[in-house]
């Protein structure tokens, strides 16, 4: 139900959306040693999508992002459970994560953690749950 014709918002969103999405990815990756992480990054991504929903209507947004957010939540859950249950194979206590420093070309020295994958799961869950809630309220008029 698109009844407003808010040209300023629409134009601004087209640009802003990418900045917000990009920043949310930054926040997500920064979360390892600095403030940030999967939860806040996921919320920010969800915020970007909500901004899109405010500007356009649900049908348009579904056209742009054909994602079933419930499935996204489940994928996130599986990510989180899978990475934490990986420690079961090595007979280490549940949720124990491995990490190590790796030298990659171009990117330089990196500290890679399996906890990042866990956080990715959290990210998906947060985006999925938030969007499911918003859609549930927003779908029927």
């Amino acid at each position: 139900m698109r009844n407003t014709n808010n040209i300023i918002l629409e134009t601004a969103v087209k640009v802003l959306l990418f900045f917000i999405a990009l920043y949310s990815v930054y926040i997500f990756t920064a979360g390892h040693y600095y403030p940030g992480g999967g939860f806040i990054g996921g919320l920010m991504t969800a915020g970007a999508i909500v901004l899109l929903l405010i500007t356009y209507d649900i049908k348009t947004v579904v056209g742009i992002l054909p994602v079933n957010f419930r499935i996204l939540t489940a994928i996130g859950l599986l990510f989180a459970i899978g990475t934490s249950a990986g420690s079961l194979i090595f007979d280490a206590p549940f949720l124990t994560h491995a990490f190590g420093d790796v030298h990659l070309p171009i990117l330089g020295d990196l500290s890679l953690h399996t906890a990042t994958l866990f956080d990715l799961g959290v990210y998906f869950v947060v985006v999925g749950v938030t969007m499911t809630i918003i859609q549930t309220i927003g779908e029927d008029e």
Partner: peptide, 13 residues
């Protein structure tokens, strides 16, 4: 705890 959690996630699919 883990078995039902994992099952719950799979059942969503």
């Amino acid at each position: 705890i883990l078995i039902p959690l994992f099952t719950g996630a799979i059942l969503i699919f």
